[in-house]
């Protein structure tokens, strides 16, 4: 399966979705002009991946900041992952960033996937 690899910019996150190396990560800042357009390749990739996922998918979110338009799309990503058995979300937040911690907790209440919270 193809690797999705997007370099991070000042308004878009770094994304690596690599099945063969079992790396699934979205990190950095997310405030794109058009969040739906930006996240579409991610949603497409997950849809294809869901046909033959690895046994335990550890999907990492290590976001420094995301805007409200991105939050809707992050929920869409999580919803897509919900259908993949064995998925765990690793939600990283900076140790003094209570808002990012709370954001992760809120997402965890909206989808049926186990979340592990980690600081960096």
């Amino acid at each position: 399966m193809d690797i999705l690899n997007l370099e991070g910019t000042e308004d878009t996150p770094k994304i690596i979705l690599d099945k063969s190396n079992e790396i699934f990560e979205i990190s950095g800042r997310s405030l794109p002009e058009d969040s739906a357009e930006f996240y579409q390749p991610v949603l497409d990739w997950i849809e294809q991946y869901s046909n033959a996922p690895v046994a335990a998918t550890e999907f990492v979110f290590k976001l420094e900041y995301f805007n409200t338009a991105s939050s809707k799309l992050i929920l869409d990503v999580l919803s897509a992952l919900e259908d993949i058995d064995g998925t765990t979300i690793l939600w990283y937040f900076h140790e003094d960033d209570e808002d990012m911690e709370e954001a992760g907790e809120e997402f965890s209440e909206l989808v049926e996937i186990p979340f592990e919270f980690k600081t960096y």
């Binding site: 739906a36 338009a69 809707k72 799309l73 809120e106 209440e109 909206l110």
Partner: peptide
């Protein structure tokens, strides 16, 4: 916040006030 994010499509311009919340 949670009810808006769950129930709206992002295509609705303005994110249905999610930004203000």
């Amino acid at each position: 916040y949670k009810s808006i994010i769950k129930n709206t499509e992002i295509s609705e311009k303005g994110g249905a006030g999610l930004g203000f919340v």
